[in-house]
Design a binder for these strands. Structure first.
Length: 296
DNA sequence: TTCCCACCTATTGCAGGGGT
DNA sequence: ACCCCTGCAATAGGTGGGAA
């Protein structure tokens, strides 16, 4: 069954006249007749009773009509959805965000992006490095924001956004408050709260080994909000990227000897063509000033 | 694997004609 | 005069083969 045949049929249902229906469809009357005949042939029954001024739908035609109306309605909806997607109106955009990345550095960008692109519906998906890599490959997400201790290999392109240092976080009144920075050797004597989703976790834990000190780990969690809550409650200190701190009242100092940092990047699948909304996001990310100029 | 071209087939629309 | 159908030509679309 062809779409134009359905269109001709529905025009005939309205006009109940071959000539007038043809005018509505912008075709000649014989073309419309042929179209209706084709449809009748395909459906196996007569749709209209041809009686000059009394041309009308047969019982068979009345039975078929709602189904073909449904097809036309769905087709219009599909065309409308396609238009919205291509012209960035109600266009979905799925972005993966690594669990260890805090919203702090993104709120200004996201606010500008939403203002400039009100038609793009942003969906944020949280996940680990492995989970987001898999979702990128399967197409479940279009882009991912990842913190990378080292460059990604394989089929991925990574666009550098900003670098962030790792800091020690602790509660108010902790002895660290008196220092500008905390050397690792000073870290290993404190009760530690283990961030299981941290991509630098192995590097951090190695410090206890290097300093031949026993690790006193009071709690372990995949969730940064819980880790920060536990630190605030005085259970111990934790190590995390500086822009991942979200809890009010939490204190932090930069880690030193050695310094530890990571690159936050926008990751996409190499060689894969972007959808319009993805292309716009990448363009805006490129144009955004991720590292603010040094203040006065 | 992709692109281009030639050839074949199907579809569409116009002109004209028959029936009422 | 109006409504619908038939025959024919133009056009669009599909297929297969060859080149890059």
């Amino acid at each position: 069954m062809e779409m134009h045949e359905i269109r001709y049929f529905l025009a005939m249902c309205e006009a109940l006249n071959f000539r007038r229906a043809a005018v509505r469809c912008n075709i000649s009357q014989p073309a419309l007749t042929k179209g209706i005949q084709k449809l009748e042939e395909k459906l196996g029954g007569q749709l209209f009773r041809r009686e000059r001024n009394l041309t009308h739908l047969t019982d068979f035609g009345r039975l078929i009509r709602p189904y073909l109306e449904e097809i036309q309605s769905r087709t219009s909806a599909a065309q409308s959805a396609a238009h919205d997607f291509l012209y960035l109106d109600k266009a979905p955009l799925n972005i993966g965000i690594m669990v260890s990345i805090g919203p702090l550095r993104f709120t200004r960008f996201l606010s500008e992006f939403q203002r400039d692109n009100p038609g793009i519906e942003l969906w944020l998906h949280e996940g680990t490095l492995e989970e987001l890599s898999e979702k990128l490959m399967s197409g479940a997400i279009d882009l991912a924001i990842m913190g990378l201790p080292q460059p990604l290999g394989g089929r991925f392109d990574a666009m550098h956004l900003y670098a962030e240092r790792y800091v020690a976080v602790f509660a108010r009144g902790h002895r660290y408050e008196g220092s500008n920075q905390i050397p690792f050797s000073d870290l290993v004597t404190e009760p530690y709260i283990d961030r299981l989703s941290c991509e630098a976790r192995a590097l951090v834990l190695k410090q206890w080994e290097l300093h031949e000190t026993e690790l006193v780990c009071t709690h372990r969690s995949h969730r940064d909000d819980w880790v920060q809550g536990l630190v605030l409650a005085g259970f111990g200190m934790a190590v995390m990227p500086e822009f991942s701190i979200s809890a009010m009242g939490l204190k932090s100092r930069v880690l030193a000897e050695p310094e530890l940092s990571r690159n936050v990047s926008l990751v996409s699948v190499a060689g894969r063509r972007f959808s319009p909304s993805t292309a716009k996001f990448v363009k805006d990310v490129k144009g955004f000033r991720w590292t603010p100029p040094p203040g006065p």
